[in-house]
Write a protein that binds this DNA or RNA. Sequence first.
DNA 1: GCGACAG
DNA 2: ATCTTGTCGC
Length: 228
Amino acid sequence: MRLDKLIKRQHKLAQRVRIKKIHGTIQYIAGVDVAQKAELLFGCIGVFEFPSLYVVDEAFAQASSTFPYIPGFLSFREIPVIVKTYKKLRKKPDLILVDGQGIAHPRRLGLASHVGVMLGVATIGCAKSHLYGDYTVPRLGRGRYTYIRDGKKRIGIVLRTRKNVRPLFVSPGNLVDMSDCRNFVLASTTKYRIPEPLRYAHTMAREKARELGSVDRWSFYGTAARIV
DNA sequence: GCGACAG
DNA sequence: ATCTTGTCGC
């Protein structure tokens, strides 16, 4: 597969990424995640009131997976269904937590940044593991963190959201800065390692993948109904 | 050539 | 990510 074309597109889109501190109030914060079942992708978004973290809206959409998973090019696989899901939301969030990297990416365009540019919304990349950049392990305790670096450039943080639990790899997606990343990820994380909006989206996506993703039980029931 | 490698 | 039950540990 030829990726040089996609690499150029990433560099171009990366120029549209804006790293700046959030201004104004964040009333709604969302989490988006994608689950897979065979050749289908299920995107889900949960919108939470902030800082109460009450669920105020949610949406899901499905699409066939076309692009394969290739480290560094995850966004080309998930962007389609994510955009489709976002359009179905009635309450648009002021900030979205995305399951993946932000600018902590070889070309500064991880999934969160790509989503942020495409939707023109503030996003934060919240990955469960490392992809790019150098870092040292942060000391124990919720809130402790170290920077993810690319040479002398700080491109993200390795943040502990809970004590004695593996840290998260957080980085600016779009329209947020490094401090916003730490503040909002911690503010939306309660008793688990993963921020609530992301946990919600993840759970919802998996449920959709299970019920609608497997074989066509629909044709089965349809046949049964006709037989009976 | 070898190791790394989001979901 | 997905395939998958019970189980060791804070």
